Amino acid sequence: MMKKLFIGSLATTLLVSGAIGINAYAKGNDSKLESTQVPSVTKSIISEKEAITIAKNQVDGDLVKIELDSDDGRFEYELDLRNADGEHEITIDASTGKVIELDLDDDHYDDARTTAASIKSLISEKEAIAIAKKQVKGEVTKIELDKDDNRYEYEIELRTNKGEADITIDASTGKVLELDLDDDGYDD
């Protein structure tokens, strides 16, 4: 009986000692990996404070959440800012500080003019209309700010004395992307 108790105690001691040793070895290897990888990554990305400043330059609001994430091998800050218009989700490239994506997370918020006003990097509605009127003389009947292929675009309809014209303008650059003249009298 004493022999069985001794063997059981010895086996338990060896098992616990082995587990502690393996755990210590694993932790030792993890800390070596962290100390060689993390500093090189954190030196090449902007700080949270810089990301918040960039986001607040896009949307005036209160910070709700900030998260550093890796997407397709690229580090990105994902921020949520809330203001009277709703909650804005902003994604910033952590290496360059460039805004990758800006979305308003609010179903009832579709007014293009308010959207354009809250996204400071886009040309204004007034500027888009001026660009459209340089292309075609007419009266604006409709203007919308839309997101297409991760790009904000103004879609403008004008009524002219020859018919209707539809113009699509890149809201970031002001470049005319499309011009459709709906009348046989127009010469393309």
Rank of each mutant, 00 (worst) to 15 (best):
M1H: 11
F6D: 08
I7M: 11
G8V: 14
S9G: 12
L14Y: 07
L14V: 13
A19M: 12
A19C: 11
I20D: 06
I20G: 05
G21F: 14
I22R: 12
N23V: 06
A24Q: 09
Y25N: 03
K27H: 12
K27Y: 10
K27E: 12
G28M: 06
G28Q: 09
N29C: 10
D30E: 15
L33D: 11
L33Y: 15
E34Q: 13
Q37F: 14
V38W: 09
S40Q: 12
T42I: 12
T42E: 13
T42A: 08
K43I: 04
S44I: 11
S44R: 11
I46R: 03
S47K: 01
S47H: 01
E48H: 04
K49P: 02
E50Y: 02
E50N: 03
A51G: 05
A51T: 00
I52Y: 01
T53V: 13
I54K: 09
A55E: 04
K56L: 04
N57D: 13
Q58K: 11
Q58Y: 06
Q58F: 04
G61K: 06
L63K: 09
L63V: 14
L63G: 05
L63F: 07
K65W: 09
I66L: 14
I66F: 12
E67G: 10
D69P: 06
D69G: 05
S70I: 15
S70M: 15
G73H: 02
L81H: 03
L81T: 00
L81R: 02
D85V: 03
D85K: 08
I90W: 00
D93M: 01
D93N: 05
D93V: 01
S95G: 09
T96F: 02
G97I: 02
V99P: 04
V99D: 02
V99Q: 03
E101G: 15
L102C: 05
D105Y: 07
D106V: 10
D106W: 10
D107M: 08
H108T: 15
H108R: 13
H108V: 11
Y109D: 11
D110N: 12
D111L: 00
D111A: 02
T114Y: 06
S118P: 02
K120V: 08
K120T: 13
S121P: 07
K126A: 13
E127H: 03
E127A: 10
I129H: 03
Q135K: 12
V136S: 09
V136L: 08
K137A: 13
K137F: 09
V140I: 10
T141L: 11
K142T: 05
I143T: 03
L145S: 08
L145E: 06
K147Q: 10
D149Q: 11
Y152K: 06
Y154F: 02
Y154P: 00
I156D: 00
E157Q: 14
E157D: 14
L158I: 06
R159W: 09
R159L: 11
T160P: 06
T160E: 00
N161E: 05
A165I: 01
D166P: 03
T168Q: 03
A171E: 00
A171V: 01
S172Q: 15
S172C: 05
T173D: 04
K175M: 07
K175V: 08
L177E: 06
L177Y: 04
L179Q: 05
L179C: 04
D183V: 06
D183Y: 07
D184H: 04
